[in-house]
């Protein structure tokens, strides 16, 4: 089974995000009112081959914990989607699986 995986990684709430802060100020300068708490993170995609969804889930979680996310400063969330046989370009009929959210 092949799964399409989408991973988001962002700074923990307790960590100051100077990029988000700069963008927030820029938005205010442009006149957008009521916009706050801008946080900048990373978005990653990958394809995972596994014999079951549980196996894929375990592998992705380990990859996030070991490599993609540094838990000292970051947290993560990911979703798995069964890659359809003819699902070119995603958005297919695979089961949307909102999966694990990393430790906060």
């Amino acid at each position: 089974m092949r799964f399409d995986v989408r991973v988001r990684v962002w700074l923990k709430p307790s960590v100051f995000d100077p990029q988000g802060h700069a963008v927030e100020r820029a938005l205010a300068t442009l006149g957008y009112e009521g916009v706050g708490r801008v946080r900048i993170g990373k978005y990653m995609e990958m394809s995972v081959e596994a014999s079951s969804e549980a196996e894929a889930d375990a592998m992705v979680r380990e990859i996030c914990d070991r490599v993609l996310c540094n838990p000292v400063m970051e947290t993560y969330a990911y979703e798995l989607r069964l890659a359809g046989p003819d699902a070119a370009g995603g958005g297919g009929d695979g089961l949307a699986k909102p999966a694990g959210v990393g430790q906060s």
Partner: peptide, 17 residues
């Protein structure tokens, strides 16, 4: 060394960018 956990903590983007 911090990424390797030989030292604690992490080094982030400078506050002034």
């Amino acid at each position: 060394l911090t990424e390797s956990h030989l030292l604690p903590g992490a080094l982030l983007r400078n506050e002034h960018l």
